[in-house]
Design a protein around this nucleic acid. Structure first.
Lengths: 109, 109
DNA sequence: GCCTTATATGCACATATATTCATATATACA
DNA sequence: TGTATATATGAATATATGTGCATATAAGGC
């Protein structure tokens, strides 16, 4: 039952299945747009309403709403309702981690 | 000189400057395409020539070359020449780390 | 020099994406 | 019910992106 040298790395060498590839690429796509990065960056500090985000980042309400839908579909943000106002906040620790790591890496290099 | 409560988080709350935003978004853009993910995934295991990559991943030579140029511009890959053959390998530990983290996260959830 | 092999590049094209405007929906309140 | 406020949605548009074909470039061998 000795292992072929080439097989020792088998797990690492295995090609990525289509679903994994899709999930991973979608995740990074979410982080590939400056507007979405800015939105996630403020939301990982505190929850905010759609209009607050728009004012803080100087964006149109509809732009923010469209991007929040994108992020919500990927479950990167969640919201709670308070009257007619929806408070959004980040909802994926791993992605926030990766974003923060990369921001810090960019800031210090 | 007491701090305003809102100012305590000031560093974290600060908006991202344009250059950081650009670098970060470009980095994630590199990782947002399935073809580039596959290329980086094989290159973090071993160096490979353009044609080897194309054969391994069943892609056209020109597709691989185009994407390698993209990755090379961002300094995510490097190459060494051997005759007419160019051997590419990954060249950014941080990005490889982030990619591997996210792949593992996707595989186990 | 010529021929072969490996890679890069320019162009064209189809598709995806981000934003905006206008409008629809939803909730609260008088 | 009607009005005001907050958010979501659809359509249109401009731009970006990924891929493939054809061809150019570069290096090595004869």
């Amino acid at each position: 039952m000795g292992k072929d040298p080439k097989e020792e790395n088998k797990q690492e060498m295995e090609q990525l299945d289509e679903e994994t590839l899709f999930v991973v690429s979608q995740t990074f796509k979410a982080l590939s747009d400056p507007t979405r990065i800015r939105i996630l960056h403020v939301l990982c500090e505190q929850e905010m309403s759609v209009n607050q985000i728009a004012e803080t980042l100087d964006l149109r309400q509809s732009t923010v709403s469209h991007q929040l839908r994108f992020l919500k579909n990927l479950r990167l943000v969640k919201y709670r309702r308070a009257g007619t106002t929806l408070f959004y906040s980040s909802d994926d620790e791993h992605v926030i981690d990766v974003l923060q790591q990369t921001i810090n890496h960019a800031l210090h290099h």
